[in-house]
């Protein structure tokens, strides 16, 4: 039997209530995804090398590659145990709870401005090319065309948002969905970053959370289920731990903390980390641009609650 190490609050509560049966949707080395038949959402079982994330349970295995788990294996939950066929039993007794809470947009943005500039410089140097960061010239027409379209559409989206041309913005956002290489297309990853920023309490852009919800509604069927789930959760302000860590570092971190947190995000997937980080940084730039032009109620400090012991 394998022990669960930590898991997202909502997922653990659902598992606790045993409102969960499903099948294995996809198998990777570090994660497996399970389709829940009760609510049609994907849930992830992740090895201990992966950070906490929405709909995710981190368990004490190094890899799923050798456990013999296959697509469509049945998944059942009973008595605080997850059974994947007869291949794996996961005990949740000692799993710590984790909840994704996006930090508030700061009232004093001077440090944020400096950190955004540092983040841009670091991404210029260390970001992965091929998605939102233009690839080096090559004969690969597909990649070059994808990159041009990503840049053009993301810029048009941001410009339209700033001009309140919401119909154009919506069109551009939808035309980013499913665009790009990788399991989670680069356009989706960019939107994950952007939607996260819209969900920062006190954000000058928080009025656009409805916009992101509409885009996600339209996105169903335009990208694969794994990528769709990440976008859907981001539109609700629920993102993985490393992204939250980066936001905290951007708001209040030292240069060292910022670069450490940024590197963690840049290491996600192939170009996914760079694409998400680009969405975050563009979103913050819009916030900085709009800051002061609107008046929002101040909310209390809103730090992520992390790792509450669970019995």
């Amino acid at each position: 039997m394998i022990q669960a190490i930590s898991g997202e609050l909502g997922m653990i509560e659902r598992l606790q209530r045993s409102e969960f049966s499903g099948y294995v949707h996809s198998v990777f080395d570090k994660t497996i995804n399970v389709m829940c038949l009760e609510n049609g959402e994907l849930y992830t079982l992740a090895c201990h090398r992966v950070d906490n994330a929405p709909n995710t349970l981190v368990i004490d295995v190094n890899s799923f590659g050798e456990l013999g788990i296959n697509m469509n294996d049945s998944v059942q939950v009973a008595h605080n145990r997850i059974n994947i066929g007869s291949k794996l039993v996961i005990a949740m007794d000692h799993a710590k709870l984790w909840e994704s809470i996006v930090p508030s947009y700061p009232t004093d943005v001077e440090l944020l401005k400096k950190n955004v500039a540092k983040m841009n410089r670091h991404m210029d140097m260390h970001g992965t090319r091929g998605g939102m960061k233009k690839p080096l010239p090559s004969h690969r027409m597909f990649e070059e065309a994808v990159s041009s379209m990503l840049l053009e559409r993301s810029e048009m989206l941001l410009t339209a948002l700033l001009r309140h041309e919401m119909s154009t913005a919506f069109d551009m956002a939808v035309r980013l969905v499913g665009l790009g290489p990788g399991l989670t297309p680069s356009g989706d990853d960019f939107l994950v970053g952007l939607f996260t920023i819209f969900n920062m309490p006190n954000s000058p852009c928080s009025e656009w959370t409805d916009f992101s919800a509409r885009v996600v509604q339209e996105a169903q069927g335009l990208t694969n289920e794994i990528s769709y789930m990440a976008m859907k959760k981001a539109s609700l302000g629920r993102v993985r731990e490393s992204i939250l860590g980066l936001l905290h570092a951007l708001i209040a971190g030292s240069q060292e903390e910022l670069l450490l947190a940024l590197d963690r995000v840049l290491n996600i997937g192939s170009s996914s980390g760079t694409d998400i980080a680009t969405g975050l940084v563009r979103g913050l730039e819009i916030n900085i641009h709009r800051g002061g032009k609107i008046c929002l109620p101040k909310l209390s400090s809103n730090k992520a609650r992390i790792l509450i012991p669970y019995r």
Partner: peptide, 29 residues
């Protein structure tokens, strides 16, 4: 996973005689 897909795409483009190779998810975009 994305890392495998990108690596497959890069290697496929390096195969002798290949002018273009694309490995990508079948989305509308």
């Amino acid at each position: 996973d994305s890392v495998s897909l990108m690596s497959l795409s890069t290697k496929a483009n390096q195969i002798e005689g290949v002018e273009q190779a694309v490995v990508a998810m079948g989305t509308e975009m």
